[in-house]
């Protein structure tokens, strides 16, 4: 039963991911991305990672995709005409596709893992409490570094997009 549900979610996720790439309408692409993220959240639920599933829906589906939609609708981008593919592109993508299939086949053939009962192992970070505890004890340093990462990302947005009018005075 769990297997069946997994396959349904996996097909749903992969299908909506394909739709993101193939659709010409940007709003439709953003909505397909939303569905894709919900599918991923469903797979997390199957893995008992409820926290991750909730975060996925809140942060990505809720905030990030909503932002995408805002920007897409503000810019009002029309789905342009796609250029026809060059011959070289087609040949190389067929070649890459065959390589990808071979890779997947080798995964299916050689990469099979047998695991015992994973339910017996103590889940790490599955609940909010243990997750928070790890975050603020063992992984405190990475959390601090991420703080700096977000700071420079914010500065970067300002530097790259703000209108600078008073620059003459600085000189």
């Amino acid at each position: 039963m769990a297997d069946l549900i997994f396959y349904i979610f996996a097909a749903f996720t992969a299908g909506s991911a394909l739709a993101v790439v193939l659709t010409k309408n940007t709003v439709a692409a953003a909505l397909a991305l939303l569905l894709c993220l919900v599918g991923v959240a469903g797979i997390f639920v199957l893995l008992d990672a409820f926290l991750l599933a909730a975060l996925m829906v809140f942060v990505y589906a809720g905030a990030v995709v909503a932002l995408f939609l805002f920007i897409v609708m503000l810019l009002d981008v029309q789905g342009g005409v796609r250029k026809p593919f060059k011959k070289a592109t087609i040949v190389s993508s067929v070649f890459a596709f065959i390589l990808l299939l071979l890779g997947l086949a080798s995964f299916a053939h050689k990469g099979v893992q047998t695991t015992g009962d994973l339910g017996a192992a103590a889940p790490v970070g599955a609940t909010l409490k243990s997750y928070g505890e790890q975050l603020f004890t063992t992984y405190l340093l990475p959390v601090q570094i991420v703080g700096f990462l977000l700071l420079i990302a914010m500065l970067g947005v300002i530097v790259l997009s703000k209108k600078f009018e008073g620059l003459e005075d600085i000189k």
């Binding site: 992984y139 340093l141 990475p142 570094i145 700096f148 700071l151 420079i152 500065l155 970067g156 300002i158 530097v159 600078f164 620059l167 003459e168 600085i170 000189k171």
Partner: peptide, 29 residues
């Protein structure tokens, strides 16, 4: 004609991160 200070700020943060990178012993870090 560019903002100046942010450049130095980012260079400093990037170098600190590189120093940590060269001493990391864990994939998360």
């Amino acid at each position: 004609k560019m903002p100046r200070i942010e450049f130095f700020h980012i260079v400093l943060v990037v170098s600190a991160a590189m120093m940590l990178l060269a001493q990391s012993n864990n994939f998360i870090l």
